[in-house]
């Protein structure tokens, strides 16, 4: 399957998603090009997570179109090109080493009943090196810090040769220093050619690295394009993230 490299990595047109009869996403048309580092932003309940879950095929959509790498989601089967990093809290890992968790990402290319080959093991150690956790391969996943667990989940998404990384709130529950190093890691991966879509509450440490921002509000796109130029201030927690965004991005006219 030859796909032209100018096709956007993600494209939606007039996307409609309803959950329990309520429209959660309305008329969402976005485009994410190859090599971009895009922030998907918005307040609580704005539909950010629903949008990424729809893009990943986890939620059906009731209208409009979704294309991945230029192919309609109905015909898309190249899931090894997409790496999903869910919110850390949704992962239920009780008993596993770091390497075992990362190795599950290879299942997009491994066949059932086939034991892991040399390439699979190499890719696991490469992915752990990429996230700077090579020395933790045989430690229990549950005993890592929050930031380290997030890195493991990023490695798991990378190990299947993903060209697109989709991260859902990677900064949730990790301290500021760790946010900085996770942001630097995403920047590195983006430099190496990985397209990155990251759901964020506030841009924080990622601000200087972003190439693009999409802002949702109540299920509609209210901004596409320029990312904010200044990071949100970490300690202004009295102000709603959404309000800050709107001021920073959309200027005084709204």
């Amino acid at each position: 399957m030859q796909v032209s490299s100018t096709d956007p990595v993600i494209r939606t047109e007039s996307l409609l998603v309803e959950l329990g009869g309520l429209p959660i996403l309305r008329d969402v048309s976005i485009e994410i090009g190859r090599g971009e580092l895009t922030a998907l932003m918005g307040g609580n309940g704005s539909g950010k997570t629903t949008l990424v879950r729809t893009l990943l095929g986890l939620i059906p959509h009731q209208g409009g179109q979704v294309e991945l790498f230029g192919i309609s989601d109905r015909d898309f089967h190249d899931w090894q090109r997409v790496g999903y990093v869910p919110q850390r809290g949704t992962v239920n890992i009780k008993q596993a080493t770091v390497a075992e968790v990362v190795a599950t990402g290879r299942l997009s290319v491994r066949r059932p009943f086939a034991p892991a080959g040399k390439v699979d093991r190499q890719r696991v150690s490469q992915a752990l090196e990429q996230v700077h956790l090579a020395d933790r391969a045989h430690r229990p996943f549950t005993q890592l810090s929050g930031g380290q667990q997030q890195r493991v989940l990023i490695a798991r998404a990378l190990v299947g040769d993903a060209e697109l990384l989709v991260l859902d709130e990677p900064f949730a529950g990790v301290d500021l220093g760790v946010q900085d190093s996770l942001a630097a890691l995403l920047g590195e991966l983006n430099q190496q050619g990985t397209t990155v879509l990251v759901v964020l509450h506030e841009t924080g440490a990622l601000t200087p690295l972003l190439t693009n921002a999409i802002v949702l509000r109540e299920g509609r796109v209210i901004h596409v394009g320029t990312p904010p130029t200044e990071p949100d201030h970490y300690h202004e927690q009295d102000e709603r993230a959404e309000d800050r965004l709107l001021r920073g991005l959309i200027g005084e006219s709204h």
């Binding site: 990943l56 089967h77 999903y84 949704t90 599950t104 299942l107 997009s108 299947g160």
Partner: peptide
């Protein structure tokens, strides 16, 4: 993979 993270398992097909 299915026991630890159903959503991720779905996204890798």
């Amino acid at each position: 993979a299915v026991c630890t993270d159903e959503d991720f398992a779905k996204t890798i097909g």
